[in-house]
Design a protein around this nucleic acid. Sequence first.
DNA 1: ACGGCTCTGCTATAGTGTAACGTCCTGCCG
DNA 2: CGGCAGGACGTTACACTATAGCAGAGCCGT
Lengths: 168, 168
Amino acid sequence: MNTTRGDKPAFHDGGHEHQSCIEDALARADDVCRERGVRLTPLRRRVLELVWSSHRAVKAYDLLAALGDAVGAAKPPTVYRALEFLMAQGLVHRIDSLNAFVGCPQPDHRHSAQFLICGGCGDVSELNAASIDRAVADQAADSDFALSRSIIELHGRCPRCATLPPTP
Amino acid sequence: MNTTRGDKPAFHDGGHEHQSCIEDALARADDVCRERGVRLTPLRRRVLELVWSSHRAVKAYDLLAALGDAVGAAKPPTVYRALEFLMAQGLVHRIDSLNAFVGCPQPDHRHSAQFLICGGCGDVSELNAASIDRAVADQAADSDFALSRSIIELHGRCPRCATLPPTP
DNA sequence: ACGGCTCTGCTATAGTGTAACGTCCTGCCG
DNA sequence: CGGCAGGACGTTACACTATAGCAGAGCCGT
């Protein structure tokens, strides 16, 4: 696992036991929803589980397909509404440059985040770099700009994929 | 006018003579295309002019509608191909969080950029803040991440719209 | 039980973007 | 001059992303 705060913060190693990532994320989600008095319904929980099924950003229609596997296929509003709830609770983030969604490892507190997006394996790693926040806030202030939301999405290659050619 | 380098870099004042913004942008585009030996065809030039018709980010299908005004309506690939060319030449940037496009005031050289996006008037201002670039590059390096493209889109309120309530 | 609320299902449609193929134009070379 | 290669544009069709609006089901406090 990673903390996004250690010496080498980002990206999971290839062999990590991912099932525990999912379980941890769901447990954290249960906690924050209970604390906030909001309902993590079975549908929402299932969508969150699917988002966490990898460390890649997941497309809404892929979630839709995964939901509809067994039963009659789910419809778009179903998954979009679940995602809307999960985003409102900070349980998932939307990656605008991919039209896709990724689980948040730290849903317990509001935070601005930055995302490292690997063009090789597709894995997304969330940073919470105070230095970037500070530089952004300073620049906004210099322009008398009242900042409300920062979208910072950094594309490139994770350490494991660094050797491959740049296939954007 | 603004330079994005002065004391208060960003955002145009309300009363500026915008026609000269358009003309300047087209003149710069003519220059860089001639220098690079690429063809700024009438269609591409017209699309660029439409992108520059305001300082807001323009949606592809709005361009499409504007193009089709008089004659038979243009089709999506027409405008997307023109935009693809203009982006390849650095003449416009895509704002991923808006699915929209904005003219680049400095197409003559490659640069990473940050965008201030006002939720009030919709105007977009391009920054080229070395301090943000540096913070981002440092964080990427800390994660052994080979950075190739930075998407930094900052939403908030420009100075003139700062007084209004936050209507995202 | 009742009324109000939230959550979910469903239909339909809006909005965004691309694949694939054909034609024409332009610049180049023999 | 004639032919050719590549780029630019037109057109059709389609894929993907997202939301509006309404109906029914379940939960919850009174």
